[in-house]
Nucleic acid binder design. Sequence first.
DNA 1: GACCACAAAAGTATCGACAATTTCAAACTC
DNA 2: GAGTTTGAAATTGTCGATACTTTTGTGGTC
Lengths: 256, 256
Amino acid sequence: MAAAHARDDGSQANRRRADHSETYLRLREAITGGRFQPNERLVEAQLVDLLGAGRSSIRAALVRLDQEGLVTRQPNRGARVRLISGREAVEIEQVRIALEKMLARSAAEHVTADDLADLEATVVEMHRRLEQDDRLGYSELNSRFHQRIWKMADNELAASLLATLKSQSIRVQYRTILQPGRADQSMREHVAILAALTAADPEATEAAMAEHLSHVVSTLRRAIATSQVRLPGAAASVAPEAVTSPLAAGANVAGA
Amino acid sequence: MAAAHARDDGSQANRRRADHSETYLRLREAITGGRFQPNERLVEAQLVDLLGAGRSSIRAALVRLDQEGLVTRQPNRGARVRLISGREAVEIEQVRIALEKMLARSAAEHVTADDLADLEATVVEMHRRLEQDDRLGYSELNSRFHQRIWKMADNELAASLLATLKSQSIRVQYRTILQPGRADQSMREHVAILAALTAADPEATEAAMAEHLSHVVSTLRRAIATSQVRLPGAAASVAPEAVTSPLAAGANVAGA
DNA sequence: GACCACAAAAGTATCGACAATTTCAAACTC
DNA sequence: GAGTTTGAAATTGTCGATACTTTTGTGGTC
């Protein structure tokens, strides 16, 4: 959440070398962090003095984010924060499930004592957070749990794809854990995954993960269905700045 | 390691000026088509008069291709055609399998008479090509077969991810179908997939696809192992242009 | 008041020039 | 002769200016 105006110069030898990738990361963070509304217009000139970078950096960052699926760009008409439709959200979840299943299996094939220790600790801590009704903390640990599995599976490509997908659907995902009753069930499912990993049983691990994620998805579907999402159809062309989205402020809150 | 989905990009090509996305497509084509060696340096100035586009277009295209995983860029040191390591090739295949399995299952759930007719025709034609020992033609039809399944599954995200992955590993994939005995087996496997789809049996379809792909991978592994790939370690810094790779000229030759 | 034409404004796309960095090779030192 | 320094060439990174496109606003006409 680096603050905006960081014009640190003032002298002639300005240019604090805000690197290309630096700009990209900051813009990305701003988008995934919810500093912009979905579908909000991203005007290059505005970003220039919001991020304190040159226009070419901004431009490059937008191209990257477009390719990454976080913004959309239309020729001569600029860039907007990409709005994930319900359909796309489902597609994302399907892909996510396919990859996580594969990684879970793979993880079970390479499991080490170290991994198990870490996962156990995470699960224990998750339980504690749950008792304190600290849902945000739970979400973070949930992320950690899954990421440890990714690491165990040792497939960087899949892990990075998953990370990208997650950033695309953050706005949607954060809903699940808040649904009534979901937390306890989620807890049980994680325990089951851990058990299968402890047994070093790829088949069972994949199955447990599949079970877990299918519940996440159905919860998600329910959440979307009930709390009718009011899409900003043709979003306000105004949307000046600092409009804080529901999840806003918080760090990445993962689906659970 | 980058994600990426091809955006729909409305192709309003009628632009006398070599459009931005036009440049991107041409450069992409040049890379996947094998006009550049893996690891070959892509000097911006050279690309400018090779493609007849402005430097900013080239630059944007390189950023995109970087994100897509087809080239790598180092700050101040330019871009190179990405060289897929053996490890990465395996990762790609794993992801590909996970996604294709998912899509196969999904396809079986939505199968229509039209789809079956098309698939059958494709398989018949594949058989014919095989008898004529037309391996290239077979490969093309193989691609077509799989793409039809993607379409049936109706998950654009997964399909576009698969397309990207395929373009990354083209240089590796083309080997499989040339392996002795592989062709006949491949044929049988496609028939099995078709049968499962005809029965509209998601479980069986996924299994058949998994079986098929696991064979593709093991064939691939064998092919890589035997024909010791001679990596251009620290690739020639010269590599002027038009150096044609083994598969070269041909359109996309898919693994079978 | 609704509709159209046309002008002004906002914003993106692209080019050229210059600055900064890396690379390569020759000259130099020990 | 091996290793190091220095300088020039090659190449990438960034900025400013300009051309082009889309959007917005205004006034006239029926």
